[in-house]
Amino acid sequence: MKRLLVVDTSVRVVFHSILVLSLYFLFAGHNQPGGGFVGGLTAGAAISFRYVAGGVAEVRRAFPLRPWTIMGGGLLIGVLTAILPILSGNALLEHAAWEADIAILGTVKATSALPFDIGVYLVVLGLILMMFEAFGDDEAIDEAVGASVRGDALEADSVVSDLFELEQIRELQLRRSRRDQL
């Protein structure tokens, strides 16, 4: 694909600023509008820019980690924040909170709800990445379709492409059973 330098650069700039915004949503969420979902979804929106610029390869370059791992990791963090309090004798998902006075920033509050939100963020991010893997991987789609045209990978499935014609299926089954008898 031909790529324009201008588009490329501007997309990268926009991409990173949106990513920063998404992180802001994530960390500010406990006190202002935002949170893991909105953050993750915003990051997803950033990805769509990269996709527009360079297809799925560009998306992969932006996030070298496998989407599997991101999603699994997010879920793992989420579940761990849920379970760990049980191990220390508290209720499921019971959060602890710390407050500290730091000179410049004033009172900083941190709760264990944050890792939970991070888990949410990662899952949403991973989901969006996966969607582009699933529907946006044009080369692989072409390859699969090509294969089905050639009749190897998908041959069996394409046989039933005309499911609506019941008689045909019936005939197929009969022919198959006859073949098996031979």
Binding site: G72, L75, L76, G78, V79, A82, I86, G89, L92
Partner: peptide, 23 residues
């Protein structure tokens, strides 16, 4: 009562790990 969430949490934890070690 501490055991109550575990039938939900343990398989979920296992699912998360299972996604990661998919290979």
């Amino acid at each position: 009562t501490a055991l109550i969430p575990l039938p939900i949490a343990i398989p979920l934890l296992a699912a998360a790990i299972s996604v990661i070690v998919g290979r």
